Amino acid sequence: MPHDLQPVVLRDELVELGSQFREYQQRPEPDLALLAGLHERKARAFAAWADVTGDINLRLEARRAEQAAATARMQHLQRTGQCADDGTPAVARLLTSPTQWEHARSVLAHVADHSPLPGPDARLLVIMLTLRTAHTGTGNLVGQDVNALNLDEPEELIGRLTGCGWLSMPGTVDDLLASRPESPTPITVPSLRPREDGSGPFSFGRKVRPKLSGWAQRVVLDKKLRKAKATSAVRLLALQLATRTDASGRLGGDQEGIPLDVLAAWVPTDSAALQPMLDQLTRADWLTDATLGPTHLSGQLSERVLPFSCPLV
């Protein structure tokens, strides 16, 4: 930027913007609304700069800033479940039709059968990556998407996923975990790419995928689970229970419940570990006891999880 750029107010705005972008880079957590505002200011400033100098490259930079602002704004709306300017939901956080619930169950079942690594941490991460890439086998990821899952060793898990060929991406694991919304990391899951005939492991289309991904993200990052410091196994249990409810939020079809061995295989965990996990969900107020609730997992009713209501369905 020329030191003698006129008008002075434009030069001061560009200097201040440079400082604020540098400050943003130092933030420990992204703020997409703030980032969108900075890009909007940059677009206006660079457009004015182009008017002063007649430089076409500055005009192109202003347009890129406008696009970056729109992208950051949409990401903010999607992550917070707010509405776009036209009043429509940015992402349908709660699934609204039986077909969408079937699609959610199909993703969880697919991961249960095809997860490349054992353990709840790995399965939770694979579910979220599958939902992010389900339609084309490709998607974008930022470090916060992984760090928010509160996994024990995310670096090792991602390294093992790339090492076995299930996941591919440019750069290193550290690059991925450090990436921010303004510069996400492109990722690929080769097994989810459509086959030559266009078919894939899932039947839902590109418009349904972000609904499923947004819903799952809302469940596993629910503030009640975060406050309770829920483990990956508990978050997986919450996901599975949420997909097994009827329209009123009651678990199991016709109040039949779910066999414990089936539920344990989905999580995955031992059947004996389900009771403490359900107790934790209840204490966190994520589940509410009905007539017969989680306390009836012992004794003669130990083969069934009986109905209780769930606030995220």
Rank of each mutant, 00 (worst) to 15 (best):
A92Q: 13
A92D: 13
A92P: 03
R93W: 15
R93F: 14
L94T: 15
L94A: 09
L95P: 04
L95T: 09
T96P: 14
S97M: 07
P98Q: 13
P98D: 11
T99V: 09
Q100I: 09
Q100Y: 10
Q100L: 10
Q100H: 11
W101K: 09
E102C: 12
E102I: 13
H103N: 04
R105C: 12
R105F: 03
S106Y: 03
S106E: 07
S106Q: 07
V107K: 04
L108H: 06
A109Q: 14
A109K: 13
H110W: 15
V111D: 03
V111C: 02
A112L: 07
A112V: 00
A112E: 10
D113Q: 13
H114V: 04
S115H: 01
S115L: 00
P116D: 01
L117Y: 08
L117K: 07
L117M: 02
P118H: 03
P118T: 02
G119K: 01
G119D: 00
G119C: 00
G119Y: 03
P120Y: 09
P120H: 05
D121C: 04
D121M: 09
D121V: 00
D121S: 12
A122Y: 07
A122I: 01
R123M: 09
L124I: 09
L125Y: 01
L125G: 07
L125K: 09
V126C: 06
I127G: 04
I127Q: 12
I127E: 06
M128S: 02
L129R: 02
T130V: 10
L131E: 03
R132V: 05
R132M: 10
T133N: 02
T133Y: 00
H135P: 05
T136D: 05
T136P: 04
G137H: 02
T138C: 11
T138K: 13
G139I: 11
G139A: 06
N140E: 15
L141V: 04
V142G: 00
G143C: 04
Q144W: 05
Q144L: 01
Q144K: 08
D145A: 02
V146W: 01
N147G: 11
N147M: 05
N147Y: 08
N147H: 09
L149V: 08
L149D: 07
L149A: 02
N150L: 08
E153Q: 14
P154L: 09
E155Y: 13
E156N: 13
I158D: 05
I158F: 11
I158G: 02
G159H: 01
G159Y: 00
G159K: 00
R160Y: 05
T162L: 10
T162R: 15
G165T: 08
G165Y: 10
W166M: 10
W166H: 08
L167D: 10
L167V: 05
S168M: 07
M169H: 15
T172D: 14
T172E: 12
V173W: 06
V173Y: 08
D174W: 07
D174A: 15
D175K: 12
D175S: 12
D175V: 10
L176T: 01
L176N: 02
